[in-house]
Simulated scan of single mutants.
Amino acid sequence: MTRDLQTLFGIDTPIVLGPFGGMSSVALTASVSQAGGLGSFGLYGYSGERIRETAAALQAATTRPFALNLWLPTGDEVSPGDVDLAAAREAVAPLLEAARVEAQPPLPAAFLPSLEEQLDAVWDAAPAVLSVVFGVPDATVVDEAKRRGIRVVGTATSVAEAVALADGGVDAIVASGAEAAGHRVSFLSRAEDSLVGTIALVPQVVDAVDVPVIAAGGIADRRGVAAAFALGAAGAQVGSAFLRTRQSAASEAHREALRSAADTDTVLTRAMSGRLARGIPNRAVRTIEAMGAIAPFPAQNWLTASFRSAAPGDGDLVSLWAGQAAGLSRSDDAGEVFAELAAGLPAASR
């Protein structure tokens, strides 16, 4: 299986950049693609127009394949006006004050653009790969992608999710272990009930499906890559190690938190978005959790964006997403990180 991703995606090296919702950058995505891997760009919350602009910037920055990543609706998302946000607004009030936001924002017409709007823009962009999280793409989406020559990658946090994705016709599956940074993208069971570690998840997914499996979670250097391939993976997806580089869109405070993170420094929390995610706890997380009022997704994410966007450089007021192996990352340069990861590949995959 070691050559499957190279052939499938048209890349030289089976190293995939994790897509960062809200923290992707054209520079980092292009850097990984230019190095021979698959750069990925997270499109959470992006309008169709913004997706087209981002894709054009990526195409200007690299001629190599890249992936665009979308969040699939799970059906439990709330709409403006459907939920009482009084308690959640009270919980974030001290953080708005700290960010010098003078007034609570009025409710928008919608918290998120529609998937249809986003997909129309992705079809226009024609990336090499469409990757998705939080579910199985509809058959019409898979068929349209295949018609356009776009590969589809799904993300699983359990064997059952991987089987569902394979049955849904995806071309490859990211097996995301509980060590991974950011949101736990479970969709068949609660995220809290799907916290399978990478070393346990990957080989069981490999045995259960007949498409290439990309290991994710806890991989930050050549040792993690070597382990992923020993478990049967066809590639490795890496987030935190790239997020701490100067090419990412993370703030300097976030990069510093990643540099100094110990193995026990991350927590799983719903405080910042309303969905379970792994990151480094800061004032924002502690304040919201202490208040005990967290709105459902995506209302909570919209509420916290009010202070996050107002103080993007303040490490106490932003989402410090980080994986358990963040402290293993050693370089501030994406090219150096890529070279370190590639050094762990089996000889047949280099």
Rank of each mutant, 00 (worst) to 15 (best):
V174W: 06
G335E: 00
W123L: 03
M23I: 04
A261H: 12
D221L: 00
T140G: 08
A91V: 10
G327K: 03
V225H: 08
Q300I: 05
R244W: 01
Q204N: 06
E192C: 01
A208M: 09
A271E: 03
A27T: 10
R278G: 06
A175I: 09
A284P: 05
V170I: 02
L345T: 11
T140F: 01
R147K: 11
A27N: 04
M291I: 06
A91Y: 07
K146C: 02
S158D: 06
N282R: 03
A191N: 01
A322Q: 07
E144W: 14
P105C: 11
G197C: 02
L38A: 07
A160G: 15
A234W: 06
A293I: 10
T264N: 12
R222D: 14
A228N: 12
V142T: 09
S25K: 01
R286V: 04
L28P: 07
I280T: 14
Q34K: 13
A339P: 03
R259V: 13
R350C: 09
W71M: 15
A257V: 08
V318W: 00
T198F: 13
A162Y: 08
V211M: 00
S319C: 13
M272F: 13
W71K: 07
V101H: 01
M1K: 15
V152K: 04
R246Y: 15
S24Y: 03
E97L: 02
L107Q: 10
D82K: 02
V205P: 11
G10L: 10
A234K: 10
G197D: 05
D4I: 15
H183E: 06
R184Q: 12
F20Y: 15
G75T: 01
E49G: 09
P80Q: 10
A261K: 02
E179D: 07
V16H: 02
S319R: 08
A30K: 09
G18L: 04
T2G: 14
A110M: 14
R89P: 13
D316S: 03
T7P: 05
T198M: 12
G217A: 02
G48Y: 00
S40I: 10
D167T: 10
W71S: 14
